[in-house]
């Protein structure tokens, strides 16, 4: 290393010392944030007032609430999807006592809240079915005590 090279090193490092922190700091401050949009456009049925039974199953990212107009009559199944399902399609059916696909309830798609009208009954369970791949996604049996 001779004197000329030492000078060149000095110039490079002074430039780096000045320019890089400017870029590093300006790059991190004022990053345009992902905008939060508060209006939703997807229509959801109105929630029935009385919560009769609450079932959490956070493993699959699903919550099921049975609701009604009064605490004696179930008329709505509220499904809260917390994590996206990893399926090409997800149709919700009732689960029969012999563990098979029963009555059609409705379609699930993206994360969010779904409210389906159902008959007054203590559902044995539900089943989510992928119509495109033709296989069962989730089977869930409910505990009523």
């Amino acid at each position: 290393m001779n004197a000329g090279l030492r000078k060149r090193h000095l110039i490079f490092w002074i430039l780096i010392l000045i320019i890089l922190p400017i870029i590093m700091i300006r790059a991190k401050i004022n990053v345009p944030k992902q905008p939060i949009e508060n209006k939703t456009y997807l229509e959801v049925n109105k929630q029935k007032p009385v919560l009769i039974k609450e079932i959490n199953d956070m493993n699959d990212g699903l919550k099921f609430n049975f609701r009604g107009d009064n605490d004696k009559q179930i008329s709505q199944l509220e499904v809260i999807l917390v994590k996206p399902l990893k399926d090409a399609s997800s149709t919700l059916f009732e689960l029969n006592y012999n563990d098979e696909k029963g009555t059609y309830i409705g379609e699930l798609s993206q994360t969010g809240v779904y409210r389906f009208p159902i008959k007054n009954q203590r559902l044995y369970g539900v089943l989510i079915f992928d119509e495109i791949k033709n296989d069962v996604v989730i089977k869930k049996v409910f505990q009523w005590d």
Partner: peptide
């Protein structure tokens, strides 16, 4: 080949 996520396919 299927592509899917969060309710869209």
């Amino acid at each position: 080949n299927l592509v899917y996520y969060n309710g869209k396919t």
